[in-house]
C-alpha cells in the first residue's frame, strides 16, 4: 500500500473508531459519579479484613492476588524472552570488554559524576527496600520498589563502575533472586492451599493494621514481587547493556 493509501485507510477507520468510542463512553456514568458496590465494599472492609491500610495493596495482593501472579509471570516471560532474543550477540561477540581491565574506565565520566552516582547507590537501595516493605501501608509496593531497587546497580554503571556492576550483580544470584521471587509468589499461594482454605488464602498472622509487620501474605507477596521485579529488571536491562558495552569497547579499539 502506498503511504497515502495507508493514511487514507487509517483516517477513515479512525474517524469511525473515534465516533464509536465517544459514543460508547457517553454511556458511562459521569466522571466522578462512582456508585459501584464492589469498590465501596472493599474500601469499607478491606482494612479490617486484611489489616493492610492501603486498599490498593489489599486488592492487588489479596482480593485479586491471582491477577498479580499472572502479572509476575508476564514479567518473568519477558525477561526469558529478551534473553532468548538477544542471545546471539553474546555468543558471537562476547569478548572481555576493555572496561573490565583493572585500570580502565569509560572515558566520558568525570570523577564528580562517578562519586555522585556511587554515593547515591546506598540511599536508593534503602529507598527501594522502604517502598517494598511499606507497600501494604502507603503508596508503593513490590513493583514500584523493585524498579527503584533495579536502578541502584544501573547507577553504578553510569558511574563507570561496570566492573562493580558485574561484581555486585553477577548473573547467577540475580537469576536466583528473580526465580525465588517469582516462584515464591506461587509457593505463598500454595501455602494458602496447604494451611488455609484455598490458593492464595492468607495463612500468616495478620497483625495490627498500620504496623510494618502486618497484613500477612500481602507483605510476603510484596517482598516476593520486589525480588522478582528487581532481579528481573536488572537482568532485562543488562541484556541490552551487554551489547552496548561490547560494542563500545569495540569501537574504541
Amino acid at each position: 500500500m502506498t503511504s497515502r493509501g495507508r493514511r487514507g485507510l487509517f483516517l477513515t477507520g479512525a474517524a469511525g473508531l473515534a465516533l464509536l468510542l465517544l459514543w460508547g463512553t457517553a454511556g458511562l456514568p459521569d466522571f466522578g459519579d462512582y456508585q459501584h458496590l464492589y469498590g465501596l465494599t472493599l474500601n469499607a472492609e478491606s482494612v479490617a479484613a486484611t489489616r493492610a491500610t492501603n486498599a490498593v495493596a489489599a486488592v492487588t495482593f489479596d482480593y485479586r492476588g491471582f491477577d498479580t501472579l499472572g502479572e509476575e509471570f508476564i514479567l518473568f516471560a519477558a525477561v526469558l524472552g529478551t534473553a532468548l532474543l538477544l542471545r546471539a550477540q553474546r555468543e558471537e561477540e562476547e569478548e572481555p570488554p576493555e572496561d573490565m581491565a583493572p585500570d580502565r574506565r569509560p572515558p566520558h565520566d568525570s570523577d564528580a559524576v562517578r562519586e555522585l552516582c556511587l554515593g547515591l547507590v546506598a540511599p536508593i537501595f534503602l529507598f527501594g527496600v522502604y517502598i517494598v516493605v511499606h507497600g501494604h501501608l502507603s503508596p508503593g509496593g513490590g513493583f514500584q520498589g523493585g524498579v527503584v531497587l533495579a536502578t541502584a546497580p544501573l547507577l553504578m554503571y553510569i558511574g563507570g563502575e561496570y566492573r562493580g556492576l558485574r561484581t555486585v550483580t553477577p548473573e547467577a544470584p540475580l537469576e536466583l533472586v528473580k526465580g525465588a521471587g517469582t516462584g515464591g509468589y506461587v509457593l505463598i499461594g500454595l501455602s494458602g492451599l496447604w494451611f488455609g482454605t484455598s490458593f492464595l488464602d492468607n495463612a500468616l498472622p495478620r497483625g495490627n493494621a498500620g504496623d510494618v509487620i502486618s497484613s500477612g501474605t500481602i507483605l510476603a507477596l510484596n517482598l516476593a514481587v520486589g525480588m522478582a521485579v528487581a532481579g528481573g529488571l536488572v537482568l532485562l536491562l543488562t541484556e541490552f547493556l551487554e551489547q552496548t558495552l561490547v560494542l563500545r569497547s569495540r569501537s574504541r579499539k
Binding site: I131, P139, Q144
Partner: peptide
C-alpha cells in the same frame, strides 16, 4: 498515588 509511582518508575 500507587499508579503514579509506577508511572514514574
Amino acid at each position: 498515588p500507587d499508579v503514579a509511582l509506577s508511572a514514574i518508575a
